[in-house]
Amino acid sequence: MMSTPMTIFQVAGRAMSAQLVRMNTTASNLANAGNSAGSAEAAYKTMKPVFRTSFDQASGLATVDVERVVTAGEAPTKRYDPANPMADKDGNVFDAAVDESRELVDMMETARGYQNNVEVMQTAKSLIIDTLKLGR
């Protein structure tokens, strides 16, 4: 995919994009927590990104890509609620099974990961600027 050797900025930048995808899935999951639907198929299912290392032989560096986003977690919970307008013919609705505390923990980890990559980028930038000023 990449013809030129990978740089430290690409390593940190692509990792930040991957963490952002993860943050977006977490946001979707939390937003849809408590949603109900008329069938098990239509109910919202927890989404999770699959991270994959992308190794660059030329530079010996490795960054991370989101390979795909999968649905994970529990099956939707069936609840008897005949008064609900979305209830099926047996009077059941299906609640999205989103583990909210797990999502919150995931969100904190994502934020930490993103911050770490920002820190890496800042350090690399200032060291490169210092190197350019060599001899002045």
Partner: peptide, 16 residues
């Protein structure tokens, strides 16, 4: 610096 940045970037990649 690049190798350590790669480690930090892959802090949550399974199997890295």
């Amino acid at each position: 610096m690049g190798v350590l940045a790669s480690n930090i970037a892959n802090a949550s990649t399974p199997g890295f």
